[in-house]
Design a protein around this nucleic acid. Structure first.
Length: 246
DNA sequence: AAGGGACTCAACCGCTCTGAA
DNA sequence: GTTCAGAGCGGTTGAGTCCCT
C-alpha cells in the first residue's frame, strides 16, 4: 500500500549549502532532471532530504533565475496581484519569469509591507488602515481577496477592470506615492491581458509543472529577451564560481 | 572602533493537495 | 473508498550583513 516511507531524517545535513553540494545537485539535475526529488539526494551523493534539494534548486540554483533586484514596476505589479490573489505567492511568482515565490514573499514581508504601511494602507486588505480594521472585523480576519470568495471572483476582462476601478476609488489617495502607485497600476492594466491572467489562474491548479507560466504573452515577450540574457549570465557566473572552486 | 538594533534572505517546518497503490 | 508518500506551498526562523549611534 502506498509508497516507500519518506527519507529517514537521521544523519541528513541541514543548514546552508556548500558550493560542493550545489555543484553535485546542479550536475545531477542537468544530467537527470527532477523526476523524483526523493531520489535526487541519494543519486547525487548528497546527505540532504529531497525536499531540501528541491528548495535549493527552485530558489537558488535554477539557471533561469533572475537574481537581480526587483524593479519598481515589478513591485507595483506584485502589489496589484497581491490585492487580487492574497498571499498566494506561487501564483504571484508565476507572473514574474525568473522570480521565485520565496523571493517575492521575502520582498513583500521586508519591503512592500513597510511601504504600504507608510502610505497608510493595510498590506492585508490594501485599504486605508482605519477602513481595513473595520473590514477585518467584519470578515472574521480572513483576507477578502484571497480566501473563501472565489465564487465571486470576476471572470471577464471587463468585470476585472470594474473591480480594479472600484478598488481604485475606494482607496484615499493622500500622498504622491500612492497616486504614482496607482498610475503605474492603471498602466499595468493596459499592458497586461487580464483575460489570459484569469485563464492562467483557473488552469494553474492543474499545472504542476515547476516551469514558469506567466500566462501572459505580452509580459513574456517584453521580459523574455532581457530575462533570458540575465539568466544565462547568472548561469555562466555560477559555472565560473565552480570552476574556481574545483 | 565597537556595540547593538534593523534588515535581508536562505532555509526549515508543518500543513494541504494530489495521485498512486 | 481509504491510506499514505511525494510535491508544493506559505509561514517562520535565524544567521549574516548593514547601518546608526
Amino acid at each position: 500500500m502506498g509508497r516507500q516511507p519518506c527519507c529517514e531524517k537521521l544523519g541528513l545535513k541541514r543548514g546552508p549549502w556548500s558550493i560542493e553540494e550545489d555543484y553535485k545537485l546542479m550536475n545531477f539535475i542537468i544530467n537527470n532532471g527532477t523526476q523524483c526529488w526523493r531520489m535526487v539526494p541519494k543519486h547525487a551523493g548528497l546527505l540532504r532530504c529531497g525536499k531540501s534539494c528541491r528548495l535549493r534548486w527552485v530558489n537558488y540554483l535554477r539557471p533561469d533565475l533572475n537574481r537581480g533586484p526587483l524593479s519598481e514596476v515589478e513591485e507595483n505589479q506584485i502589489i496589484q496581484l497581491h490585492a487580487r490573489l492574497g498571499n498566494r505567492w506561487s501564483k504571484i511568482a508565476a507572473h514574474f519569469p525568473g522570480r521565485t515565490d520565496n523571493e517575492i514573499k521575502n520582498h513583500w514581508n521586508t519591503r512592500i509591507k513597510r511601504r504600504l504601511k507608510l502610505l497608510g494602507l493595510d498590506p492585508l486588505t490594501h485599504k486605508p488602515l482605519e477602513q481595513s480594521v473595520e473590514h477585518v472585523t467584519k470578515s472574521e480576519q480572513t483576507c477578502c481577496y484571497s480566501n473563501g470568495d472565489d465564487d465571486k471572483e470576476p471572470q471577464t476582462e471587463s468585470e476585472l477592470y470594474l473591480v480594479a476601478e472600484k478598488k481604485h476609488e475606494e482607496i484615499a489617495l493622500d500622498s504622491n506615492d500612492t497616486i504614482n502607485l496607482f498610475q503605474s497600476y492603471e498602466m499595468l492594466w493596459e499592458n497586461l491581458s487580464m483575460e489570459s491572467m484569469v485563464h492562467s489562474e483557473t488552469s494553474s491548479s492543474n499545472d504542476n509543472s515547476p516551469s514558469f507560466s506567466t500566462g501572459d504573452s505580452n509580459t513574456r515577450s517584453i521580459c523574455e529577451s532581457s530575462y533570458m540574457h540575465e539568466a544565462s549570465q547568472n548561469w555562466i557566473h555560477s559555472a565560473d564560481l565552480w570552476d574556481a572552486w574545483f
